[in-house]
Design a protein around this nucleic acid. Structure first.
Lengths: 150, 150
DNA sequence: CTACGTGCAAACGGTTTGCAATTCC
DNA sequence: GGAATTGCAAACCGTTTGCACGTAG
């Protein structure tokens, strides 16, 4: 599934096949960003999150590149962009693992939990039909807090 | 319900009691903006929508004031701010008539239809409970198009 | 070798804000 | 009259982009 190699700087490079399938050259910045998204603890990071972590790791990269790469990932269906009201207007990105899901977002910690519910999905379709509405996409976000949080 | 008067410029001034209840002085700009929101055909307008219509009506107002007033309305629960992905990043505002509802947004025309569904609301609560999550608010938006549209 | 990708800094677009002038009560 | 409000222009902040340089294949 992954092509793993080690460059002279001891940076682990995992070039996902999806990168090539998307017609994107396997460049260091793209690989670094993909790695960050793959290893993100709650699976959702803003461009700045990724940029700061990479800089912190000692990597050399520019914020503009992070934005450009994320936009390319989105266009290639490798990543999904969300606009959670709780993040200061910043978009957050997650890897697209295929299955649709909705989100629960903690207003306290920013923690994100994904969920999927057939009953809700079906009701959405029924309601749309009642209004002669064809759904292209939809966004359901629950904002609040988890009881185990600080 | 409304206090209606007529100023020398023949502008109908409806100062909603909510304005006073919110501790907001009943000023001309606030009344004009409230009127626009009340008369909006699809109940959802961006700050710029409101500004342009007022200028078109021959009113004198600044965009900064529209933004400030809308933010005050939001804080006073007179209006609700939404971020529909379809609007070019612009926030849209609607009057808060009390009852919660979700939205169907046309990607073609920007038309907005409101709906409310008990089944969905209940499932959201159940799912939240399963995750020990306390919902503060939530946002459900269906994007697509209405069949009767151009 | 050459098309594609990146870094930098400047531009962009929606929104906010400091300040002086104005308005409401 | 005095506090609250407005207009203007500049600041802000996340994101995008033009251009010269760098790099993958």
């Amino acid at each position: 599934m992954y092509i793993v190699s080690l460059n002279t700087d001891n940076i682990v490079i995992m070039s996902n096949i999806e990168l090539k399938n998307a017609g994107l050259k396997v460049t260091l910045p793209r690989v670094k960003i993909l790695n960050k998204l793959e290893s993100a603890e709650n699976h959702h990071m803003s461009a700045e999150d990724i940029y700061k972590e990479l800089i912190n790791d000692g990597e050399v990269i520019s914020l503009a590149t992070v934005y450009r790469v994320l936009t390319q990932f989105e266009a290639a269906n490798i990543a999904i962009r969300h606009h959670f009201d709780s993040d200061n207007g910043q978009a957050v990105f997650e890897l697209n693992h295929g299955g649709h899901h909705d989100h629960m977002v903690s207003l306290k910690t920013g923690k994100v939990v994904e969920f999927y519910d057939d009953i809700i999905e079906n009701r959405q379709k029924e309601i749309a039909k009642e209004h002669n509405f064809k759904i292209t996409e939809h966004s359901l976000i629950l904002y609040g807090e988890f009881s185990e949080e600080d």
